[in-house]
């Protein structure tokens, strides 16, 4: 007996609340339907043949996956450190990790320029390593990593915090140091949270626009990702913009579905309790 079994309350309010839900759903869903109503499947495929569209999509996939790889490789042990330790300044660290979530992407792009651009505070050091970021594909990866990392790291911290501390203690009493405990008990125990965090970060990276434009520019074939290409097509070829948007919507829907499937499955860790 839960939601539906509740009795009493005023009918009037229930109708108003249901109306609000209908309004919200309509507002959210209509533009997505419109995306497909405007482009038939055939136009969609042919528009992708448009010069630049397929290229932009391919660049988006490559750069977002490269950013995801970086985020997961560095973010997973970092999240473990934050989750399993109580240290001075922990609250500050958590705030810093979450800051890019609320930072306007355009501001993030300017901040990246100020830090890693040719005249940025770390620009010289990066240049001396022989790495070029601005107006380069590598710069896209940097922008995507900056914006998407918090989505993964936040989820990873929560997932590691949720692991039964006794499991980690058990691992230690069985002779495993922290590294082995992290690999053999920590990661398997947090895998659902890690996977959904990775999917969210990937989704965010795929849609990134502002920071990429500011930091890496919109050079066709080099830094023009799918969202940037959509913006450029808007002026000269609305159908191509529509088609590319539809493809991004499908890809994003798949990612969301994957998150639901992974996150909806009861975690094996909990099943034992």
């Amino acid at each position: 007996m839960s939601r539906s079994g509740r009795s009493g309350g005023s009918i009037g309010f229930r109708i108003a609340a249901a109306g609000a839900l209908a309004l919200l759903l309509g507002f959210l869903v209509v533009p997505m339907i419109a995306l497909f109503a405007e482009t038939g499947p055939r136009e969609l495929v042919s528009s992708l043949g448009e010069r630049g569209a397929a290229e932009a999509l391919w660049l988006s996939l490559r750069t977002s996956l490269a950013a995801l790889l970086l985020i997961v490789a560095v973010g997973t042990p970092a999240a473990w450190f934050v989750a399993r330790r109580d240290f001075r300044g922990r609250a500050l660290v958590l705030t810093l990790i979450e800051l890019p979530l609320v930072l306007p992407p355009a501001a993030a792009g300017i901040a990246l320029l100020a830090a890693f651009g040719p005249n940025g505070i770390a620009g010289g050091a990066i240049e001396s390593l022989g790495i070029e970021l601005v107006l380069q594909t590598a710069g896209v990866v940097v922008a995507l990593t900056f914006v998407a990392a918090p989505f993964f790291v936040r989820g990873a911290i929560a997932a590691f915090e949720a692991i039964d501390a006794n499991l980690l203690d058990a691992s230690r009493t069985l002779g495993a140091g922290e590294g082995r405990t992290f690999l053999r008990v920590g990661i398997p125990g947090a895998r659902a949270g890690l996977a959904s965090g990775a999917a969210l970060a990937w989704g965010r990276a795929l849609g990134e626009f502002g920071a990429t434009l500011m930091f890496a520019g919109s050079l066709e074939g080099r830094t023009q990702t799918a969202p940037l290409a959509i913006f450029e097509f808007l002026a000269r070829d609305f159908d191509a913009a529509l088609a590319l948007s539809a493809v991004l919507l499908v890809v994003s829907a798949f990612i969301l579905l994957a998150v639901k499937l992974v996150g909806g499955r009861p975690e094996v860790v909990d099943a034992d309790r």
Binding site: R172, V269, R273
Partner: peptide
């Protein structure tokens, strides 16, 4: 000496078996 190098066996109250 850290727990992992004490060479002990520990049985936890809820057993703490690795669920996976």
């Amino acid at each position: 000496v850290p727990a992992e190098r004490r060479g002990i066996g520990f049985v936890f109250q809820d057993y703490a078996l690795f669920p996976h």
